[in-house]
């Protein structure tokens, strides 16, 4: 007995207003002529122009994308392997420790993860830079990927794999031609999640970055500490825009895939 009462309408409206009004204000004021971010002085796209000429931001953006791409790719490979181990490998020595190490980073405060990795890199005398951030991001993102992938693996019918073996597949063959296509959506969303986490991360990157490898969040954080600036508003608008388009495209594609699957099974 679902009822859309006025209470529900009001709470949804207020809730979504709370979620979206701050971002809307950010977007609107990125087109503000004035340097003062809370006073409207006419429409302008000049801050976007300035942003595109700001070398420091562009460099940071490039570093961030590089880190995101490499770390999420490594995280996806490792996370899928880890998911396989968790769901399919049965008992092995140190299994509890293994699953502990998969789940712990999910709840570990970022400051601690960052601190511990930094101390590791220092004691191994590794020079900090893009490489160390990639390692750090890959480590915590792989745990998210393995959670996403293992939840998909846990629900799919294991007899499909057994059927593949029965029909003559070797282990790798069965994985490639049966398991992977089935878990592919989860692997892709795992990659996207890892990529987003990497793009988003400030704390761990701050600990593990070197002087020459400033990522976008580090750059934004240091300028935001000095107060609100229209350039950051413009940058935020671009990021929000990209993410929105990305999420909508992803959800439409996955919905289509779902519909197609349903039609196939009917």
């Amino acid at each position: 007995m679902r009822r859309m009462t006025s209470f529900n309408v009001v709470s949804l409206t207020l809730g979504f207003a709370f979620l979206y009004i701050p971002m809307l204000i950010l977007i609107i004021y990125s087109f503000n002529e004035s340097k003062l971010v809370t006073v409207w002085a006419g429409f302008s796209i000049k801050w976007y122009g300035e942003l595109l000429q700001n070398e420091a931001f562009l460099d940071a953006a490039w570093v961030t994308v590089k880190v995101g791409f490499f770390s999420s790719t490594i995280a996806t490979v490792l996370g899928t392997m880890a998911a396989f181990v968790l769901v399919r490998s049965g008992r092995f020595f140190g299994r509890t420790l293994f699953s502990g190490m998969i789940y712990a980073p999910l709840v570990m405060p970022e400051v601690i993860t960052g601190l511990s990795l930094l101390l590791l890199f220092i004691s191994l005398s590794v020079d900090r830079g893009v490489f160390t951030i990639v390692l750090a991001h890959a480590t915590f993102s792989m745990c998210y990927v393995s959670v996403v992938v293992s939840s998909r693996m846990a629900t799919f019918d294991q007899s499909l794999e057994e059927a593949a073996y029965d029909l003559g597949c070797t282990g790798w063959d069965a994985f490639k031609s049966v398991t992977l296509p089935i878990i592919a959506p989860a692997v892709i969303s795992g990659w996207l999640l890892a990529f987003t986490l990497s793009l988003d991360d400030l704390v761990i990157a701050s600990f593990t970055a070197g002087p020459s490898s400033t990522t976008l969040p580090i750059k934004i954080f240091s300028s935001v500490r000095l107060g609100v600036s229209p350039e950051i508003n413009a940058l935020s608008t671009i990021i929000i825009g990209l993410v929105t388009v990305g999420v909508i495209v992803a959800s439409i594609t996955s919905k289509r895939a779902l519909v197609r699957r349903q039609q196939e099974t009917v």
Binding site: Y20, P22, Y29, V224, V228, T244
Partner: peptide, 28 residues
């Protein structure tokens, strides 16, 4: 659901930053 998850995918830092302009003394 999408509307609830969408902000989660956008930068955490930006979402915090958005409140500086709202909550400051001259803020919205």
């Amino acid at each position: 659901m999408l509307l609830i998850i969408l902000p989660f995918w956008t930068s955490f830092l930006i979402r915090v930053y958005a409140w500086i302009g709202i909550l400051s003394n001259e803020g919205f």
